[in-house]
Deep mutational scan, measured.
Amino acid sequence: DLPPEQWSHTTVRNALKDLLKDMNQSSLAKECPLSQSMISSIVNSTYYANVSAAKCQEFGRWYKHFKKTK
């Protein structure tokens, strides 16, 4: 379990794929700090720029909290 400071584009993509087993992209976009188009691009590997470090950390913090509450 990585601390949010160490999250990267790959970590975010893997976490998104895991979350999308249980929910669809639009529900996920309402919950998490990423937009639906960004989620779609990341999981389909069409998001060519890497997600910014700040966004990765924000998502990492959100993901840890989300997993605790589920």
Rank of each mutant, 00 (worst) to 15 (best):
D1E: 10
D1Q: 15
D1G: 04
P3I: 08
P3H: 12
P3R: 08
P3S: 14
P4D: 08
P4N: 14
Q6I: 12
Q6N: 08
Q6K: 13
Q6L: 12
Q6S: 13
W7R: 01
W7K: 00
W7N: 02
S8T: 13
S8L: 04
S8R: 07
S8D: 06
H9M: 14
H9R: 14
H9D: 05
H9C: 15
T10Q: 15
T10K: 15
T10M: 15
T10L: 14
T10F: 11
T10C: 13
T10H: 11
T10D: 06
T11P: 00
T11E: 15
T11H: 14
T11I: 08
T11D: 15
T11S: 07
T11K: 08
V12K: 01
V12A: 02
V12S: 00
V12Q: 01
V12M: 09
R13H: 05
R13S: 07
R13E: 12
N14W: 13
N14L: 14
N14K: 07
A15K: 06
A15N: 01
A15R: 04
A15E: 07
L16N: 00
L16Y: 04
L16R: 02
L16S: 01
D18A: 07
D18P: 04
D18C: 07
D18I: 11
D18Y: 12
L19F: 05
L19P: 01
L19E: 03
L19C: 15
L20C: 06
L20N: 03
L20H: 02
L20W: 00
L20A: 04
K21L: 10
K21Q: 13
K21C: 08
D22N: 10
D22Y: 12
D22Q: 10
D22V: 11
D22L: 07
M23K: 03
M23G: 07
M23Q: 10
M23I: 04
M23E: 04
M23H: 03
M23F: 15
N24R: 08
N24E: 15
N24A: 09
N24K: 10
Q25V: 15
Q25R: 09
Q25G: 09
Q25W: 12
Q25M: 14
S26Y: 08
S26H: 14
S26D: 10
S26P: 11
S26E: 15
S26V: 13
S27D: 08
S27F: 08
S27R: 08
S27P: 02
L28W: 10
L28V: 07
L28E: 03
L28I: 09
A29Q: 06
A29D: 08
A29H: 04
A29P: 14
A29T: 07
A29M: 06
K30W: 03
K30C: 04
K30H: 15
K30T: 07
K30M: 11
K30N: 08
K30A: 10
K30Q: 07
E31F: 04
E31M: 05
E31I: 13
E31R: 13
E31D: 09
C32F: 02
C32W: 01
C32Y: 02
C32E: 00
P33F: 01
P33I: 00
P33W: 00
L34M: 08
L34F: 14
L34Y: 02
L34E: 01
L34G: 00
L34H: 01
L34D: 01
L34A: 01
S35R: 02
S35W: 00
S35L: 00
Q36G: 15
Q36Y: 08
Q36S: 13
Q36M: 13
Q36D: 05
Q36C: 13
Q36T: 10
Q36P: 11
S37Y: 06
S37E: 12
M38H: 08
M38V: 09
M38R: 04
M38L: 12
M38K: 11
I39G: 01
I39T: 02
I39R: 00
I39E: 02
S40F: 07
S40I: 09
S40A: 13
S40Y: 10
S40L: 13
S40W: 08
S40M: 09
S41G: 10
S41W: 06
S41K: 15
S41Y: 06
I42S: 02
I42Q: 03
V43A: 08
V43S: 05
V43D: 05
V43T: 07
V43E: 06
N44F: 05
N44Q: 10
N44W: 03
N44H: 06
S45V: 05
S45K: 14
S45Y: 10
T46K: 13
T46D: 08
T46N: 15
T46F: 13
T46W: 06
T46A: 13
T46S: 13
Y47K: 09
Y47H: 15
Y47I: 13
Y47P: 14
Y47D: 03
Y47M: 06
Y47Q: 06
Y48M: 09
Y48G: 11
Y48D: 13
Y48W: 06
Y48V: 08
Y48F: 06
Y48S: 13
A49S: 13
A49R: 10
A49I: 06
N50Y: 07
N50T: 07
N50C: 09
N50H: 15
S52K: 06
S52V: 00
S52R: 02
S52Y: 02
S52W: 02
S52C: 05
S52T: 14
A53N: 04
A53H: 14
A53F: 11
A54H: 06
A54Y: 10
A54W: 06
A54T: 14
A54F: 05
K55N: 10
K55I: 02
K55L: 11
K55P: 03
K55H: 05
C56E: 01
C56A: 09
Q57A: 12
Q57P: 02
Q57V: 13
Q57T: 12
E58D: 04
E58V: 04
E58C: 03
F59G: 00
F59R: 00
F59L: 00
F59S: 00
F59K: 01
F59Y: 02
G60L: 05
G60W: 06
G60V: 08
G60E: 09
G60Y: 02
G60P: 00
R61M: 13
R61A: 09
R61P: 01
R61F: 06
R61H: 04
W62K: 00
W62I: 06
Y63M: 05
Y63C: 01
Y63F: 03
Y63V: 04
Y63P: 01
Y63I: 03
Y63A: 01
Y63T: 00
K64Q: 14
K64D: 05
H65I: 01
H65T: 13
H65M: 13
H65D: 14
F66Y: 07
F66L: 09
F66K: 11
F66Q: 07
F66C: 11
K67A: 04
K67D: 08
K68H: 09
K68E: 12
K68Y: 07
K68F: 12
K68D: 04
K68C: 04
T69V: 07
T69D: 08
T69K: 15
T69R: 08
K70T: 05
K70M: 14
K70G: 13
K70R: 15
K70N: 06
